[in-house]
């Protein structure tokens, strides 16, 4: 039942790797989000808050390209949004890492399973579903 430890990558090794990847992803995302937050509050903290009316975010905060443009221009809200995108990317990176692990383990069925999940995630993140 358990994968023999003689394989190049045991399930145990993969678990450790996935755990570390998730932890690092969350830490980096949190730091970027918090840094953007400090900058935003320093610039806009005393303005009036209004999230009651739904307008939708401007196009430059809806996609990776626009967000990176905003970050390069040091827009605080774009830096927060970059942190959130890194956070969303963390589970995706975990699935990609699982795919590499299954390829190294030559586990054909799970190479297919993991590829399907990864394809669905990329489909979603590249705006594949119509609004």
């Amino acid at each position: 039942m358990e994968t023999p430890r003689t394989q190049r990558w045991s399930d145990y090794d993969v678990d450790q790797l996935l755990g570390n990847l998730l932890r690092i992803g969350v830490i980096i995302a949190t730091i970027v989000t918090a840094a953007g937050g400090v900058l935003y509050l320093a610039q806009h903290g005393l303005e009036q808050a209004d999230r009651r009316v739904f307008q939708g975010e401007p196009p430059e905060l809806r996609g990776v390209r626009g967000i990176i443009g905003g970050v390069l221009a040091l827009h605080a809200s774009a830096i927060i949004q970059l942190g959130l995108v890194l956070l969303i990317a963390t589970p995706v990176a975990r699935v990609a890492m699982s795919l590499v692990a299954f390829i190294l383990q030559r586990d054909r069925v799970f190479i297919v399973v993991t590829s399907i999940v990864l394809a669905l995630l990329i489909f979603s993140l590249t705006g594949g579903v119509p609004g």
Partner: peptide, 21 residues
């Protein structure tokens, strides 16, 4: 995390994710 990431991509591209909130 994976389930929520699948939805979050769509919410992001629709402009439903507000950084300040």
């Amino acid at each position: 995390g994976v389930t929520a990431a699948a939805s979050a991509g769509i919410y992001l591209s629709r402009g439903y994710i507000d950084p300040v909130l």
